[in-house]
């Protein structure tokens, strides 16, 4: 059984945009699945379905079936709080909360009710190490997070998501605003951690997908055009449109 089994997923925004149309795919655990495609293809919408952040957006209609283990994520009655602790998200822009470094990383655990200072300390250190930020910040955990550089802030955001030890980490163009060094650190974190987590990433370039992906899904205007193991899709794309996109002929 796959971790996610998605069947005929359709999402319509209240302005009438059908940003996903009949998407059917399975996503495997402990892999890096990349969603590629030109702007407006529906990659962000897809990611937000998986942790129900679309509840905050102007969505009119969601239909189909999205099974995460034995839970249907489209069921309005599921515990979304618990879901978001199990499926975390990192956004395109580094978005530290207006708190200290430490409190940023501890935020999720604190809201989950963790009081023990020792446990929080340990979780914060582990998450910061996993995001490859610990060595740069261990001596100023009480400083405001806004003082970090953009690349450090984004790694802080990754650590903040990892601190809850989620099962799945969604990353929506996590390196689109970053320098090459921070980008490389985030990519290597992903590769090192995929033993423990499942990553679903909208990479900011095809090259990035090439460096990290096990599976690649190509979205075009809400349609899932092709979904293949990375080695397949990059060498032998089946669909003409995928080939055109990979060769930079549009988007």
């Amino acid at each position: 059984m796959s971790l996610f089994e998605i069947y005929d997923l359709t999402v319509e925004y209240s302005d009438g945009t059908e940003s996903l149309q009949g998407v059917t795919m399975n996503i495997e655990a402990n892999e890096v699945t990349c969603l590629i495609g030109p702007a407006g293809g529906g990659k962000s919408t897809f990611l937000r379905v998986l942790n129900r952040l679309n509840d905050l957006a102007d969505v009119k209609k969601v239909s189909g079936k999205v099974m995460f283990k034995d839970m249907n994520l489209l069921d309005p009655k599921i515990d979304v709080i618990d879901l978001r602790r199990r499926i975390g998200m990192v956004f395109a822009r580094p978005l530290p909360l207006p708190l200290s470094l430490y409190e940023n990383v501890a935020y999720g655990l604190r809201t989950a009710g963790e009081r023990s200072k020792a446990k929080l300390d340990r979780a914060v250190e582990q998450a910061l190490r996993q995001a490859q930020l610990w060595d740069e910040v261990y001596d100023r955990l009480d400083a405001p997070a806004s003082r970090l550089s953009g690349g450090q802030q984004q790694r802080l955001c990754l650590a903040r998501t990892l601190s809850l030890e989620p099962e799945v980490v969604l990353l929506d163009e996590p390196t689109s605003a970053l320098d090459p060094i921070s980008t490389a650190k985030i990519e290597s974190s992903i590769l090192e951690l995929k033993e423990r987590y499942t990553f679903i990433v909208a990479p900011h370039s095809i090259q990035q997908a090439g460096r990290i992906a096990d599976h690649v899904a190509f979205f075009l205007q809400g349609e899932l055009v092709e979904y293949q193991p990375a080695s397949e899709i990059f060498t032998r794309p089946r669909d003409k449109r995928t080939e055109d996109y990979l060769q930079g002929r549009f988007g």
Binding site: R85, F91, Y107, T161, L164
Partner: peptide
């Protein structure tokens, strides 16, 4: 608004 989205994505109500 982004602060709210981030906080909610971390499992806060």
């Amino acid at each position: 608004h982004a602060f709210r989205v981030v906080s909610i994505s971390l499992g806060a109500t």
